[in-house]
Nucleic acid binder design. Structure first.
Lengths: 219, 219
DNA sequence: TAGATTGTTAATCGATTAACAATC
DNA sequence: TAGATTGTTAATCGATTAACAATC
């Protein structure tokens, strides 16, 4: 239904609109959103046309209504129970991230393989052994599994998560997970994003030079 | 030059090709890569046509040559010096990530604001105070700044990084950074990726139902 | 040789942008 | 009223996919 590029932008809209709320802004125009998110006004209006929302000529969108429409689409007001697998630094960073709750997510269990870590506390939860995952996880009524495990372990954990009935996976490992069609995977490509930087930097350097040349030629 | 979608895929190609190396594979076809990365053979050949590389009919690409071309494009064999700002769990996860070196990155300094953290050791480095950033950072000959700081601090740190001459920023915070054109920013959208999941899950559920209906109708 | 795979051109597809009538 | 902004249609742009001759 919603094109993926639009889905990707929705969290940004919401995040920005929530900031505007703190500033007491009542009306938001496509121009304001376009400027804040680095888009064109056309794109913004196209995106918002997918939502359950109507704007007002000469004013824009009522902030409260826009926020509500975004919250509905992203299901922010429902609680999404998630299980965290991997209690390393990355997993810990996520588990302790205060904004999770703000966006409707709740980590209801943490699993880890390391006997040293199993039994310790993390964000009010006790880390459970991965050995108990298959038995325990289905009882937790969680639909999302967050994989903060080494690359080598990721596919095996994903398989267990699928078998346990999870329908969404947030993958923090550097690998392509193979899952059945009905399971959604969202990849956080931290290392890949770092690897892109040299390419992007070269690109920026080149286009900056070109701009300067153009400016010089014009002068 | 290189379209951004291609740049985004290059790290995946390299990662997979490096795995094939460990398996002793000498020739890689576009079909193999397409299957492994979930692409079409056309896309793979188009992507690789941007690289300094020629394939061989009926065989594919020589693995060593393909790896070399990818390493050259991604500049893996140069050392990219990076500075880490923020020594929380997320920053620590990155600093201790063994694969950084493997992909040509070296963290040469860590900065943090918290007096409790300043002076402690992290991955063989001593955490420096953010107060010294403007003075110290330019001396480090690093071109990349990794921002693992809270959202509220990110833009200010980015400004300091730009002023200190950094040309690439890996942004782990949940915000849109404003930087001059000649500075490259790569955003790791961890929370956004999590927020996408409910939308994607709904989408999967719908298309799964549709598939089943289709199958039932066909039967 | 026969057949598989590259390299490349053309076709398709989909997303972004432009344009503009409707409207408050 | 005049002017700014929405909502939507059409145009553009660019990426992906298909197709196929060349080739080993």
């Amino acid at each position: 239904m919603l094109p993926y590029p639009v889905i990707q932008r929705l969290p940004h809209y919401l995040s920005h609109v929530m900031e505007l709320k703190d500033d007491g802004v009542a009306w938001v125009s496509s121009g304001m959103l376009a400027h804040a998110l680095g888009l064109t006004t056309s794109t913004v209006r196209q995106d918002l046309s997918h939502l359950d929302l109507t704007g007002v000529s000469r004013r824009g969108y009522r902030r409260s209504q826009l926020e509500q429409a975004l919250r509905a689409e992203l299901e922010v007001d429902r609680t999404h129970r998630a299980v965290l697998v991997g209690a390393g630094y990355l997993g810990t960073a996520l588990a302790l991230h205060g904004d999770l709750k703000r966006y409707g997510f709740e980590i209801c269990a943490v699993f880890d393989n390391d006997p040293e870590v199993v039994g310790t506390a993390l964000g009010g939860l006790t880390v459970r052994s991965m050995k108990t995952f298959t038995r325990t996880a289905p009882r937790l009524k969680a639909s999302i599994a967050i994989l903060a495990v080494p690359r080598a372990a990721a596919q095996a954990v994903a398989d267990q998560a699928v078998a346990a009935g999870f329908r969404g996976i947030l993958n923090l490992a550097y690998c392509v997970l193979r899952v059945p069609d009905q399971v959604a995977v969202s990849d956080v490509r931290m290392l890949e994003k770092l690897q892109e930087l040299p390419c992007l930097m070269r690109l920026r350097a080149v286009s900056a030079t070109r701009r300067n040349r153009g400016a010089t030629a014009a002068a």
